[in-house]
Structures are given as structure tokens and as C-alpha cells.
Design a protein around this nucleic acid. Structure first.
Length: 388
DNA sequence: AATCCGGGGTC
DNA sequence: GACCCAGGATT
């Protein structure tokens, strides 16, 4: 069998398999470039089953590009809450504004314009151009690299950029005339349903007959992939600060900086332990560290007791969280003083004035976007208050 | 080219 | 508990 025959067999059988076996997914029910774009951004590093409910809620809340472009950023983040990689959401909204400004509100269909959109790289650009506009562009994601590395026995590290480039050239050769949309989706569908990372279902594979990895028994060893470093541990002490007086039943939250990790998301106040390197502090020490932090930040509160421990693993950092219940100190004389000075009973300034702090009740959780860890902690707290 | 960005799944 | 999945931006 020649290389050309091996390629023809692959493209033909894969396409036929896909047309019979493709899943009914929300973004496949229309050929709406906006829907395809949203779905492709959400599907980066995220499985289909996780994305489906987020996708449905997202297009219900932001039915058109204009709706997305004009929405408050917090609304977009709230819709993304729990999905992770929040820069995807912020970039998506920025790109929606790009589309309004530069392309009359229509997702562009030329390569240069598509890849110029924030958050759209080589993979997503290829996905949009091929799936939405049926252009013969490669869309090489992890699924595609796994399928191709096995079928064609490509023993190159898929983490290398040069390997992706090689795969892209191969895909262009493989796309059947006029079938870019179905074919690219077929490649990914096979990777998701049959040619899975571990124990692939070779016996039901439509292209098993000429799959070189299966023939040589190497399907379990491919693709080749260099290992990433383990996340560095960080011990963090969290203040679960209960309001008193006017803030009874409320918790103190703050907004994260506008760039970096979890940018502009909301969280419970916490501090990196300066003492340990990932090791748990005894409660006494942790409360000491937290006390200093509260004082430095100008938060009028004192740690009372341990509430819970929690863990949050990012790809590069592992947060070990020790959470302490704290009581707000109501300074009677300060309130009286500010009332006479300003004529109102306003809040004392908390923090460095760059950081936004807010007291919120259980109902207000709906209004702010939190990373999953803090969602869990705050919900555990409000749940406990409820049953008390 | 190397590092920064979340969260969920399987075994 | 160990391991897996893995696009784009930034530097």
C-alpha cells in the first residue's frame, strides 16, 4: 500500500464514519459562525460534556455578538464561572468588540482577520474557517495530533511547535475536496470517541486496517509527549470574615487585580504564608499570619477559629488553603467620628484603595464571579449559617 | 522556546 | 493519590 492509498483510505473511511456517528451537539445544530466561535473557545482544554451547559447558558444570555460586546465584563465572567482559564472569557468579549468595530458584527472569514481576534490562535482560526466557512484550513488540536500520530506512526514530541506544523501540512493533504468542515470535525470526533488517550477502541475504529500504531502494537505509546513540571505548592491563609452590626450575616470579599491569575475575579481575602513552603501551619501560627495581614490591609477583624482546609490545583501552582473564621471589629468611636466629620455613617476605607472590598450576603453570590475554591468555601459557610 | 493561565476526568 | 487532558498570550 502506497502512502497516497493509505491517506485516501483514511480520509474516505473517517468521513463516512463521522456522517453516521457524529454526536448531536448544541453548536452543530446551526451553522452560525458566532456559535462555532464560542464553542471552540470553550472547548479549549475543556471536555464536551463540561462545555454543553455553559454553551447553552452563554448563548441564551448573549444571543448575538453585539450583546456580548456591550455586556458588563462581570456578567461575562459570571457566565464563565467554574469553567476555568478566565482570560478566555475576557479575550472573547474583547474580540466581540473587535468584530463590531472592524467587521460590521460578522465573524470574519479570512485567515488574517480571524487570527487577529483576541484569544484566537492557529487552532481556533482553523476551526472557525473550516467548520463555519468550509475552508480547507487545518484545525490541529490534541485529539487530531493523537489520531494522526498513531495512524501515521509519527514519533515526534507533540509538545513541540514543529510537530504541530508538520501535522497541519498533513491535514491539508487529507481534507477531501469540499469537505473541510465535516472532515476536521471527524478527526476530532474520532479522537474523542474512539482513538482515546488511554485504551483506544481500535476494534470499532473506521481506519484501524491501515493504522500503523495498531499494526505495530504501539497505539498505547503514542502520541509522544514530554512531561510538564509538577505545580509548586503554596500555603495560603484565608479569612472568612463575618460582619457584625450593620454587616451581620455578611462576608467580606475582594476583587483580584486586573491582570495575572484569576484576573478581576472575586475572592475571600487571603495571604501567602511567608513561613512555610507548602507545609501546613499550626492554627496558632496561621492565625498570627492572618492577623498581620488583616492589620496591614486595614481590615478591622480578628481570627477566631479554624473553619476548614481546601485545595485548589492550577496547572502550575497548588494552593493549600487554611480557612479561619474571623470577626469584624465594630469601632463605635470611629463610626461616630466619621458621622460628625462627613455627616454620613460611611465605611472606613479597607485596603490600599486599589483593591475593591465589599460586604455581601448569601443572595449577592449571584452578582460576583468566583473561582471554584472560594465558591465552595463561601457556600459551606452560608449553608452552615442557614442550618444554625 | 519557556512560562503563565483552571478545572475536571480516569484508574 | 497518581496521572491525564493541552490552546493562546506573554516574555
Amino acid at each position: 500500500m502506497s502512502n497516497v492509498e493509505q491517506q485516501r483510505y483514511f480520509s474516505k473511511n473517517l468521513l463516512e464514519w463521522y456522517l453516521k456517528n457524529r454526536r448531536d451537539l448544541p453548536w452543530r445544530r446551526h451553522r452560525n459562525p458566532y456559535y462555532i466561535w464560542i464553542s471552540e473557545i470553550m472547548l479549549q482544554q475543556t471536555r464536551v460534556d463540561t462545555v454543553i451547559p455553559y454553551f447553552n447558558r452563554f448563548i441564551e444570555r448573549f444571543p448575538t455578538i453585539t450583546d456580548l460586546a456591550n455586556a458588563p465584563e462581570q456578567d461575562v465572567l459570571k457566565c464563565w464561572e467554574g469553567l476555568g482559564y478566565y482570560s478566555r472569557a475576557r479575550n472573547l468579549q474583547y474580540a466581540a468588540q473587535q468584530v463590531l468595530d472592524l467587521h460590521d458584527g460578522l465573524v470574519p472569514n479570512d485567515k488574517e482577520s480571524v487570527i487577529a481576534l483576541k484569544g484566537v490562535g492557529p487552532y481556533t482560526a482553523g476551526a472557525i474557517l473550516s467548520i463555519a466557512y468550509n475552508q480547507p484550513e487545518p484545525a490541529v488540536d490534541g485529539n487530531v495530533m493523537r489520531v494522526l500520530s498513531r495512524y501515521f506512526l509519527i514519533e515526534e514530541d507533540i509538545m513541540k511547535g514543529s510537530t504541530r506544523t508538520l501535522m497541519e501540512k498533513l491535514v491539508v493533504e487529507l481534507i477531501p475536496e469540499g469537505q473541510a468542515s465535516h472532515f476536521n470535525q471527524a478527526l476530532m470526533e474520532l479522537g474523542a470517541l474512539v482513538c482515546t488517550p488511554k485504551s483506544p477502541y481500535c476494534l470499532t475504529c473506521p481506519v484501524m486496517e491501515y493504522c500503523e500504531a495498531r499494526i505495530t502494537g504501539k497505539e498505547g505509546d503514542l502520541p509522544l509527549k514530554s512531561k510538564s513540571k509538577p505545580p509548586r505548592p503554596e500555603q495560603r491563609i484565608v479569612g472568612l470574615i463575618e460582619g457584625q452590626g450593620a454587616h451581620t450575616g455578611q462576608l467580606l470579599i475582594r476583587q483580584r487585580p486586573e491582570s495575572g491569575l484569576l484576573a478581576r475575579m472575586w475572592e475571600l481575602p487571603h495571604v501567602l504564608s511567608p513561613i512555610s513552603r507548602g507545609a501546613r501551619l499550626v492554627d496558632q501560627q496561621a492565625q498570627e499570619v492572618l492577623s498581620v495581614e488583616l492589620l496591614t490591609e486595614g481590615i478591622p477583624a480578628t481570627p477566631v477559629e479554624h473553619f476548614m482546609d481546601a485545595e485548589h490545583i492550577f496547572s502550575h501552582i497548588r494552593w493549600n488553603l487554611q480557612v479561619y473564621r474571623c470577626k469584624e471589629e465594630v469601632k463605635q468611636h470611629l463610626i461616630a467620628e466619621s458621622a460628625t466629620t462627613y455627616g454620613v455613617e460611611d465605611e472606613a476605607e479597607i485596603g490600599d484603595s486599589m483593591t475593591e472590598y465589599r460586604w455581601i450576603g448569601k443572595e449577592d453570590m449571584q452578582l460576583y464571579a468566583f473561582p471554584n475554591v472560594f465558591l465552595k468555601i463561601a457556600n459551606a459557610y452560608f449553608e452552615e449559617q442557614h442550618t444554625k
